Every structure is written in C-alpha cells, then in structure tokens.
Simulated scan of single mutants.
Amino acid sequence: MASPIVVMGVSGSGKSTVGAALAQRLRVPFADADDFHPAANIAKMTAGHPLDDDDRHPWLEAIGDWLAQRCATGGVMSCSALKRSYREQLRRHCPDVQFLHLAGTPEVIGRRQASRPGHFMPASLLASQFATLEPLDADERGTTIDVDQSIDTIIDTYCANNGITTEQEKR
C-alpha cells in the first residue's frame, strides 16, 4: 500500500475512529485533520458558525502537505473533504490519494454526534455539513461505505474493495 488514504465524511461519521483503526491495521501513520485547524477556525465552529472556503483553504493546504510527505509510503488522514474541490486541492499535493467516504443518514450521524460531548463541532452544524457534502464521483479514486456497521466490518470492506490483502496489511 503506497497511496495515502483520506477517511472522509460529515462530522460525527466516525472518520477519526475508523482512520486510526485503518492506519493501525495497515501499519502506517495516522493524522486527524482536526489537529490542523488554526485557532480561528475552531473558534468559529465552536461559536456555531460553519467554515467557508476561505477558512478551509489554508487548512486543506496543511493537510495536503502532510499527504505529500506520504505519497510513496502511505498514511491515513481523517478529513471531512466534503466538496470535490477540497478533494482536488488535496490531490494537487498527492495525485494518488484514495478516499474512504463514511456515509450515513442524518439520523444515524446525529445519534453519533450526540454521544460525543465536548467536541468543538456542535451538532447544530450537522445540517450545513450535509448541505455542503458532495459524495465521491465515479471518476474519483475512492470507496463509499455505510457507517452503520462495526469498525472492523468497515475496514474489512474497504480492504476487500481495494485489493488490500492480509499480506499487505502485515507489512
């Protein structure tokens, strides 16, 4: 496995949990895009205001730099990557990046968000996340998997769909 993977989806879809578990299974570095947000972005979201594209640009550049450093060795990044233009910005840094879109209904995601108190992204912004979301297009390297199943099942499905065998996982 050489290409980095971005685990994408709306807030509360399980990106960080699945991303960390996938990175552990593949034995590659993991990073959470939340850790790349500047303080102004976190303050804006904490106040209940959605980010705009100007807010996201430098954040996506920092994530793209992380991916670029792992184009040849692999890695897993959890990042919302809600719009195709955001994914294209990441692909400019690492053209072979793959996406794992964790998809779910607003009801399922809402239940998940309610179970994580203290996160800077308030549940009130979930509707704006779904409104912004542009699912993967057929010409984008990626897989969409329903989040309403176990983490192991999601990872097993992703690996099976992308030809990642047990031998590759052990490397």
Rank of each mutant, 00 (worst) to 15 (best):
E61K: 15
Q113E: 06
A127P: 01
D52T: 10
P95T: 04
L67C: 12
A2V: 14
A39C: 02
A40D: 13
R84I: 05
S78L: 03
I63M: 13
R70W: 09
H49R: 07
Q24V: 03
D55M: 01
R70G: 06
V97D: 13
Q149D: 08
P135N: 00
P38N: 03
D156Y: 03
Q24K: 12
E134G: 00
G118M: 01
A23Y: 03
M1T: 10
D96A: 14
R84C: 08
A160K: 15
S128R: 06
G74E: 07
E134H: 10
S16Q: 08
G9V: 00
L126Y: 04
Q149R: 15
T166M: 07
L90V: 08
L67N: 13
T17R: 12
V28S: 04
T143S: 09
A72I: 08
A127T: 10
V108S: 12
R91V: 04
S16N: 11
A138T: 11
G104K: 06
L26V: 07
A138D: 12
Q98F: 04
L82A: 05
R116T: 00
F30P: 02
G118Q: 01
L67A: 11
D139N: 10
D146E: 14
L67I: 01
S13C: 13
S11F: 02
P38K: 00
G118P: 00
A20M: 14
A62S: 14
M8V: 01
R92E: 11
F130Q: 08
G118A: 03
K44A: 04
N161L: 15
R111C: 06
Q89M: 06
E61M: 13
T132F: 02
P29N: 04
S13H: 07
V10K: 02
P4K: 09
K15V: 01
Q149C: 06
T73D: 15
A103S: 06
Q149P: 11
R70D: 13
